[in-house]
Design a protein around this nucleic acid. Sequence first.
DNA 1: AGTTTCGGCGCC
DNA 2: AAAGGGCGCCGAAACT
Length: 562
Amino acid sequence: MTDRWALAPAEDGGVELAPLGPDGLPAGPVRRERDLGEAVRGRPEVARWVWRSTAEVYPRLLAAGVRVERCYDVEDAETLLLGHAGRYGEPRSAAAALARLRGGPVPPDPPQRSAEPGSQSSLFEPQSVHLPLTDLVEVYADQLRRHDTTAHPDRMRLLTAAESAGMLVAAEMNRAGLPWSAETHRRVLHELLGERYAGGGEPRRLAELADEVSGAFGRRVRPDLPADVVKAFAQAGIKVRSTRRWEIESVDHPAVKPLIEYKKLYRIWVAHGWSWLQDWVRDGRFRPEFQAGGTVTGRWVTNGGGALQIPKVIRRAVVADPGWRLVVADADQMEPRVLAAISRDPGLMEVAGRATDLYQSVSDRAFSGDRDQAKLAVLGAVYGQTSGDGLKNLAALRRRFPKAVAYVDDAARAGEEGRLVRTWLGRTCPPAAGAGDAGEEAGIPQDEPSGQPAEEGWMPGYASTNSRARGRFARNFVVQGSAADWALLLLAALRQACAGMAAELVFFQHDEVIVHCPEEEAEAVVAAIREASDLAGRLTFGATPVRFPFTTAVVECYADAK
DNA sequence: AGTTTCGGCGCC
DNA sequence: AAAGGGCGCCGAAACT
């Protein structure tokens, strides 16, 4: 078997390579070559490259003009395998894995660096732990064996492969960048915020709104200081606990309207204003640093630039190159479709087997009526809503789709009790207990360290507040995480489909993908998305009637897609 | 002076 | 009264 090779950059700038056998160990001598790019370019027959870290190797390959079809990221797999074994907090570097294997002292992971604007910093990871190829391969062979000990080895193999593919996609997206018109962005900012004043102070429109707020209160109030605003309301005889929009928008006071408008525009100004443009856009491209698998649920994050939170109005600045188009594709009602697939609820699968609006169908079946109420009820079940409109219809939902609701209820109970919960492919949610502070770092609600919980809960004998929060976390985890599993397979399939074209994946946000391509390729890309979606559904969830339709738009400007 | 947390809101 | 999950980002406030 020579289709799988391992690769390890050497400290002298060269590279070590070896073909691997079925057991993951070298099937031939280790080669040493001078040039990483040439070494890979010269071996097009290799179907999968095994390496320590995609972020270390692949940007260098891309810079040399070399793409690979598949890879296996040892450190990413280590994270997933440790998690599956319930050992979430342990160091995940290849060096640590080797130390565990050999029984030596386990080195802690190097601290995560934070991104700086415009830095292509993953080109080199100065603090990465270098590992000779023979050591790396020892870890890899062990990981292959560990896959076999998981609950579903086939799924686990699919998961590590899929996430490695995601890392290739992320690196390629980072290199491509999102087409961005700085001129349009400036125009939008000027329309919304007015002129900038010298000295970096707030722009005209914000200054006017701040004056309106002050005028309404009868004294100088800074709308960007919550404490100041709360005090001003109190002096006006209105008690508010915070200045969150949902809390103040029902308040009857002349300051409310300009205040809400101020907050909205202030947000644009500080997070996506002129200084953001200066920092993040170069040569017509916004280059966030996408990071595949950056969260415990498997969703991606971006490091810097806030690429996953681009406000709708700012999307007008995302403009295709001349003669090119953006194919914007958005998965329709992804969460309930995923829930149907993982719970195998017959009724929900039947509904999710159609490409038509799923929430409308749920509504027709479960409580003949309101589509929006159906959506609230479904999302409430997925998120663990404890009050409000969603709860009203939960009983009806439970009656019509018992297996689906039971699936998330079971996950919630497991989370409350501190048991492991997994996504469909086997990504594992960190348990609250026994994971050191890894769970806390990952945002998992923790119980009090010992003795009587600080908060007994609102009803004696019931789980503590934190334990219920963990339940909601786990409930959501199985759906959101399984959706992320599926999305990785989708990206991998779409990437393969685009390989022969000029088309490039340039953006990905949970259930939405943008491909930048020449106009004449657009229809082929639309078809590729449909096929990739079908393939991803089958690969991820096996044989189910569930479909994952996309809404696609071929546009020149992102804002025109919806 | 530098670092961490908080409040609020953007996206899904 | 308790107010759905996941993230990132920013300035201000709170800390060391």
